[in-house]
Design a protein around this nucleic acid. Structure first.
Length: 195
DNA sequence: CGCATTTGACCAGCGC
DNA sequence: GCGCTGGTCAAATGCG
C-alpha cells in the first residue's frame, strides 16, 4: 500500500461549524488550531508535497513535519522518511506531529489531565496519555519521545474539541478553536512503505 | 480540601 | 486458548 494525499475527498463525517477564516491553507488552519505560533511576524507555515507520498508542513515554530489524514488512519512522517501508520478503531480523527522540544508537553492552549503512563515495547521512552479536562470533551492526546531522536516529541491528538480554548488574551481573539474541517483525505495504492 | 499526578492493575485486541 | 501489548481505570499520593 502506498499512501498519498488528494484534494478530492468524500464528505467529511465531522463537519466543522466554526471554520477559522483567513487561512491561506487548510494546514495553516490546523497550525493555528494547535496554537503553535508565538504571534511574531516570522510565524508562517508552508505546504509542500513530497513525491506522491505525504504532505509536509514546515514553519518557523517547532513543527518540522506534520501530516493529517481523514479517519480512520493516521500517519507519522519522520525526518528520515520512514512512515508509520495505525488504524483507529472508533473512527476518531487523529492528528499527529513531531516537534523538537526539551519539554515533553507543549502548551496548546487547552487544559489536559494526565490519566496514564506506559512503557511501550517499541520505544525506550515512556508514553504519556492525556485527556481534555473540559467537561464533556472527549479529546485525548498521547505524547512520547521519538525513538530515533529523543530531542523530538511526538504528539498525537485524537478527537475534536467541542469547546473553545479556555485560555485568555491572544487566544480570545481567535473565533473558536476547533479543528478546521479538512478536505484532504488519503488514498491507497500498491505497496506499504510502513515499517 | 479539592484537584492533578502517579502507578500498578485490569481489560481488550491481536497474533500465534 | 494463551500470551503479549497498548490503552484505560482507579486508588494512593502529592501539591497548592
Amino acid at each position: 500500500m502506498d499512501y498519498y494525499y488528494s484534494s478530492a475527498s468524500p464528505p467529511n463525517p465531522h463537519p466543522n461549524p466554526y471554520p477559522i477564516p483567513n487561512c491561506a491553507s487548510q494546514f495553516e488552519c490546523l497550525y493555528h488550531y494547535l496554537m503553535l505560533e508565538d504571534g511574531s511576524e516570522e510565524d508562517s507555515c508552508s505546504q509542500t508535497t513530497a513525491a506522491a507520498s505525504a504532505v509536509t508542513v514546515t514553519g518557523t515554530g517547532h513543527i518540522d513535519q506534520l501530516i493529517h489524514t481523514a479517519t480512520p488512519t493516521h500517519v507519522l512522517v519522520f525526518s528520515d522518511g520512514v512512515r508509520r501508520s495505525k488504524e483507529t478503531d472508533d473512527g476518531a480523527r487523529v492528528v499527529a506531529f513531531r516537534t523538537k522540544s526539551e519539554l515533553d508537553v507543549m502548551d496548546d492552549g487547552f487544559k489536559w489531565r494526565k490519566y496514564g503512563k506506559k512503557m511501550v515495547k517499541s520505544s525506550p521512552n515512556p508514553r504519556n496519555y492525556y485527556r481534555c479536562s473540559s467537561g464533556g470533551c472527549e479529546v485525548k492526546k498521547r505524547i512520547e519521545r521519538d525513538i530515533e531522536d529523543s530531542s523530538y516529541v511526538i504528539t498525537t491528538y485524537t478527537g475534536i474539541h467541542n469547546h473553545p480554548i479556555p485560555g485568555v488574551g491572544y487566544y480570545n481573539q481567535m473565533p473558536l478553536m476547533v479543528p478546521y474541517d479538512y478536505d484532504w483525505t488519503f488514498q491507497a495504492s500498491s505497496q506499504s512503505p510502513f515499517s
